[in-house]
Every structure is written in C-alpha cells, then in structure tokens.
Amino acid sequence: MKLYYSPGACSLAAHIILNEINVDFDLERVDLSSHTTEKGRDYYEINSKGYVPALEINPGLILTENVAVLPFLAQHDPKQDLIPPSGLGRAKVLEWLGYLNSEVHDAYAVFFSQKLEGEAKQRAYAEIDRLLQYVEDYLAEVDTDYLVDDNFGPADAYLFVLTNWSAGIGHDLSKFKEINELREVVAKRQSVQLAMKDEGLVD
C-alpha cells in the first residue's frame, strides 16, 4: 500500500493507523499548493479531488476520504482491537468518524481556506469550541479510555490530528481537560510518534 500525504494534514490519521497494523507501506508526500507529489507527479491524476489522504491499495486502486480509509485500514489489525468487525461497536466508530469529518474538520478548515481576522476569527474559534465541547462532555460522562470502549482506534487518531491544528491557528485548547488527557495518551503511542517523526513534525 502507499499513502499520499501532506505533513500534519488529516492524512496523518491514516499514517498512524498504518503504523498500528504493522504492514509494509510506502509514503509519497503531496504539495497541496501545487498539487504535485514529491516524485513530480500531477496529484490530480491520482486523486481528482486534489486533497489527502489517498490510499493506493494496489496499483491503480485508490481509496479516498478518511471515513473510508480509516475503517478500511483498521479492519486489517491482526489483534482486532482497532475497530469491531460488526455490530454497535463498529457503528459507534463510524458515528465518531462522521462527526469528526463533517463537523470538526470543517470548522478547522475555514482557517486554511481564507485569512480570518477580528470578529470572523472569533466566530470561527467559537464554532470549534462548540463542536469540541460535545466531545469533552461525552468523555466526561463515559468510563472508557478512548472514544469507543477501552481500545485505541481510528476515531482517536483522527481527533488527535484535528486538535493538533489548534496550535497552528492560535486556538486555545487548554479549556478541554478530557480531550487533552486523551491527547496525551494517544501522543505516547509508538505509532503516533513514528508517524509524526516521519512527517517531520517532531525531531
């Protein structure tokens, strides 16, 4: 398999899960401003949507969108810990991925598509806060180590990656105690440390 990624982008979640399932895979960096890969390929020829992640499962067979890529990778976990094979447990993982992708991701994304200042920036911060508060309240109520039961999974990886963006946009994440505690646990995983090092995000 090959993952087309951009450092620190949402494709980092797929990179983390690839490390978790311990399979051989290649990485190819994508410059999202020029839409070319590090090998000089036109990225639109690989993924006509133009954004990451794109997972090449076999030559010419491409899967896109985190809500599809992350469960697909997680189901290859030999320990069967990352995502339940069926039933309510799997549905809960997909529910979280849907919320993170359609709501939280979009709330952060406005900072990357335009320059926000003044009241517009404050409104955008407030929208992130509103969406993260739902996650915070949920984590405060449940007696589990991660978003779904006691096993790390794709939703935890995705939440970690999205909330990483707070630092880059000047968003105050310190008010979310439960989320920060989960982030600390996730950050210690070897899969996360390796992915962030490979993408040049940490030394």
Rank of each mutant, 00 (worst) to 15 (best):
M1C: 08
L3A: 10
P7K: 05
G8W: 12
A9R: 08
A9K: 03
A9L: 02
C10Q: 13
S11L: 00
S11C: 02
H15R: 00
H15Q: 01
I17T: 04
L18Q: 09
L18G: 07
L18R: 04
N19F: 02
N19G: 13
E20R: 07
I21D: 08
I21Y: 12
V23G: 03
D26W: 01
D26V: 01
E28A: 09
E28F: 07
E28G: 10
R29Q: 15
V30C: 07
S33F: 08
S34V: 06
T36F: 09
E38Q: 14
G40V: 08
R41Q: 15
Y43P: 10
Y44G: 03
S48L: 09
P53E: 11
E56H: 12
E56K: 11
P59C: 05
P59K: 08
G60L: 08
L61W: 05
I62S: 04
T64Y: 08
E65H: 12
V67R: 14
A68E: 06
V69S: 02
V69N: 05
L70Q: 10
L70A: 04
F72E: 01
F72D: 00
A74S: 14
D77H: 07
P78S: 07
L82T: 08
L82F: 10
I83T: 05
I83G: 01
P84G: 03
P84V: 01
P85R: 13
G87M: 04
L88G: 00
L88P: 00
G89I: 07
R90F: 03
R90D: 07
R90N: 13
L94G: 03
W96Q: 00
L97T: 00
L100I: 02
N101R: 00
S102A: 15
D106I: 03
D106T: 11
D106C: 01
F111Q: 05
F111W: 04
F112V: 03
S113I: 06
S113H: 11
S113W: 05
L116F: 02
E119G: 03
E119F: 10
A120F: 04
K121W: 01
Q122V: 12
A124I: 09
Y125Q: 00
A126C: 08
E127F: 03
L131H: 11
L132W: 00
L132K: 01
V135H: 00
E136D: 06
D137T: 11
Y138L: 02
A140M: 13
E141N: 13
E141I: 04
E141L: 12
V142D: 00
T144Q: 15
L147G: 01
L147E: 09
D150N: 15
D150R: 10
N151K: 14
N151C: 12
F152C: 11
G153Y: 12
D156K: 13
D156G: 12
D156H: 12
F160M: 09
L162D: 04
T163L: 06
T163F: 01
T163D: 02
W165C: 08
S166F: 08
A167H: 13
I169Y: 03
H171R: 14
H171C: 07
D172K: 14
L173A: 14
S174K: 12
S174G: 01
F176N: 02
F176Y: 13
F176K: 02
K177C: 07
E178T: 10
N180F: 05
E181W: 02
L182R: 15
E184S: 15
E184M: 09
V185E: 14
V186P: 06
V186G: 09
A187L: 06
A187R: 13
L194E: 14
A195S: 15
K197P: 01
E199C: 09
L201P: 05
V202E: 10
V202N: 10
D203R: 06
